[in-house]
Write a protein that binds this DNA or RNA. Structure first.
Lengths: 197, 197
DNA sequence: TAGATTGTTAATCGATTAACAATC
DNA sequence: TAGATTGTTAATCGATTAACAATC
């Protein structure tokens, strides 16, 4: 559930002096209701101690476990433009169990270039490399018109989780989770706010 | 409201043969309930015709109007790394009334570089340029540690809408809308899905 | 008129929160 | 024991949806 990663991050914002934290504290940092926190944590079977709170280290472990951050996930980025390169380089992935194992591009002039320790590989090798390097998450950073095709190829290669940055809506295949980061929608929501405040 | 941009985009997916569309059609494309569509549209006073549907051109106009896409919004990007450069270049902004009017960086070696028609300007000039170029939306594409400071400076300069790409949670100031694009949270949600499906 | 589709009400559903007994 | 805080139930709230009269 989408609040768990937030709690996990909030644990880092706690004073290092304490080894335990209350649902109230966590709720204040996360900006949600304390009852919400307790319900979410109880849902993933993270237990606290009445009158005391939650053990921070244990809670961190339980959150990481619930989020599947014990494993390491192989990530492939498709599209080695500015965005793809930025993503390959994104510091937020490090330490959360995500490993960018490939970056692809159709453009032959880009293939072979180095992008942050990775060599850009030809899109034609997608299926092969996805299988060989156990890639389970695909990030689509191509132009809009290429996005659906790339997504289809990822799905055929066995990828079941896709993060889409192209300003295109992808057909959803059964069993495949697609999340979309849609920058113009984000800006439109901000614009809506500017008008109504 | 967050579904309006989606409807707007869906209008483009309609067959060009029709000049009118039903809430059912729109709902199918947007992946929501028809009653939802009707309620949302009625909320922004976009009226349809019983037995006929909504006039597509009129609806597009009304959606753009409700979303404030009549105006042009000045956007500043802070951070001229790969991500900032990718954003300056993002094709999804064009045609939606967003105009990137400045890109800043602290790094003196980056200042003066050209990033897609814009010259990278020194962060010290932020306040000045935000005011002079009527910038109303700020995009934070800095490293995490710099994000809060940059956001504070944007707010002091009068910016009321911030899109944050740094993996940091920003303190929220009253009247300021902050939206966060958090790539590691997105990946964590995908990882959660991989585990539970 | 018959068929289609809106606009809106009322019912449903789910998510959030208040409250409190349990208990450290 | 007194104070704090959990875990969970029940109440609340809001959002979604079904249903249907209005009407083109």
């Amino acid at each position: 559930m989408a609040r768990l990663p937030v709690y996990l991050r909030c644990l880092s914002d706690l004073p290092t002096s304490q080894s335990t934290c209350s649902s109230d504290q966590l709720a204040a940092i996360a900006g949600v209701n304390p009852a919400q926190v307790r319900k979410d944590l109880s849902h993933i079977d993270a237990r606290g101690v009445r009158g005391v709170g939650y053990d921070i280290d244990e809670l961190r472990r339980e959150l990481r476990h619930a989020l599947g951050l014990i494993k390491t996930y192989g990530v492939a980025i498709i599209g080695a433009g500015h965005l793809g390169t930025a993503l390959a380089n994104y510091p937020g992935f490090v330490g959360w169990g995500f490993e960018v194992r490939a970056i692809f591009d159709v453009d032959p002039t880009k293939v072979g270039e180095e992008a942050d320790g990775l060599v850009v590989e030809p899109l034609t090798d997608l299926e092969l490399i996805v299988a060989k390097r156990s890639i389970s998450i695909g990030i689509v950073a191509t132009p809009s018109y290429a996005a659906q095709d790339v997504a289809d190829r990822l799905v055929r290669s066995g990828v079941r989780s896709i993060l889409n940055f192209a300003p295109a809506i992808l057909r959803r295949a059964p069993g495949v989770e697609v999340r979309r980061v849609d920058l113009s929608t984000e800006l439109q929501i901000l614009a809506f706010h500017l008008q109504h405040a």
